[in-house]
Design a protein around this nucleic acid. Structure first.
Lengths: 208, 208
DNA sequence: TTTTGTGAAGTTTTTCACAGCG
DNA sequence: CGCTGTGAAAAACTTCACAAAA
């Protein structure tokens, strides 16, 4: 079964919304209502949800708890992912404390930084290593996913050394630059500056 | 002239790359080379760049400095945007110190938080107000753009009170929830948890 | 010759519209 | 009757392929 990327993105939205609705004691919800709450067309919601089998009831809607559990299983992980974070600056630390990182789907096993004040210590219970050791530590710890929160100029170097460990399968990069990786590595990019620029550009457009 | 959103996103990438190439003293670059450096097809690069007029030279490529200035003017702002940030937690503070926020395109005029330890003080030179005052302060300061770094549960309430000021035209939200706004307000969303979920989902898929 | 600019083709994603089921 | 599921149409976006310019 092949799922489009935008569908998975919306699936996470549905999941969060259903969690809320469930807490509120809501039993049933229609595609129309979901769409209104998430600013999506009802047909989009139905198409997304039907990719994974007929889960709604015609004439009724979707059973909140059932749909919630259904999406949960779609988004479930087969095992605990092993993660490392590179660049323990303000953004890196903010992420480590962020709600998105309180997940039972993965464990952050190692941090890396250049700052001698951070290296050797534990930060939020996670040991921080010097960046030079990244290849060895990633291999030893069998780390599969990298969170990249380093300055743009350092990003490619870090990625190259990380990928050299041979264990990395995915990277979530917050660096303000493109990185080149082997085809076997999946990269997702969160680009704060670009989102801001897009917002400013389209606001300017609207002004005319 | 109508520009697609993905094009603007890539334009920012081109801009950054050209800055680098310019610093390196590079005079000319081809769509092929740009594509290799950013993992894009050369045809995509050419199509993007040609939206804004014929800027390349056939048989030669693009003049680095000229193209740089050209994109700069496309991304330029007509005036200084007036911004406020809501939620001065770890993420909010990290953003304020982030490179993306050292821009001459806007000025952060006000912060808002619920924490009495933060309210009344100045943080990085920006005054922090209690969230209850948001409607009045935004109106007084004529704030047009909101950066939202509050917990999901607080997001809609903050947005409603901010929008009530009548000055808000765009929101960059880091909140892990959808927010409902009037059609006149443009919302961009940076969703760390969703990006992580997408990465995990497609890694899982690849495993089969 | 090289490399751009661009219609046309291809692909992906969204929306429509309605049959079909409860 | 109401609302889902889904083919078909439309829209958005990317890639191809080649004419045209330097």
């Amino acid at each position: 079964m092949k799922v489009a990327e935008p569908t998975i993105e919306r699936l996470v939205q549905y999941y969060r919304l259903l969690e809320l609705l469930h807490e509120e004691g809501r039993r049933v919800v229609s595609s129309q209502e979901i769409g209104e709450m998430l600013s999506l067309k009802a047909s989009q919601v139905r198409k997304d949800l039907s990719y994974f089998g007929e889960i709604g009831k015609r004439g009724v809607g979707y059973h909140v708890e059932k749909l919630y559990e259904h999406i949960k299983s779609i988004l479930s992980t087969p095992r605990l992912w092993r993660i490392a974070l590179v660049g323990v600056g303000r953004l890196g630390e903010a992420l480590l404390g962020h709600k998105a990182f309180q997940s039972s789907k993965f464990k952050v096993l190692a941090l890396f930084d250049v700052d001698p004040g951070k290296v050797g210590r534990s930060i939020l219970g996670i040991p921080c290593y010097p960046i030079e050791k990244i290849t060895d530590v990633l291999r030893e710890q069998q780390v599969e996913i990298l969170i990249l929160t380093v300055p743009a100029a350092a990003a490619q170097g870090c990625v190259d050394r990380a990928v050299a460990a041979g264990t990395i399968r995915g990277i979530l990069s917050f660096a303000q630059t493109a990185v080149i990786v082997p085809k076997s590595v999946l990269v997702y990019h969160v680009d704060i500056a670009t989102e801001l620029e897009k917002l400013l550009f389209f606001l300017k457009q609207l002004e005319r």
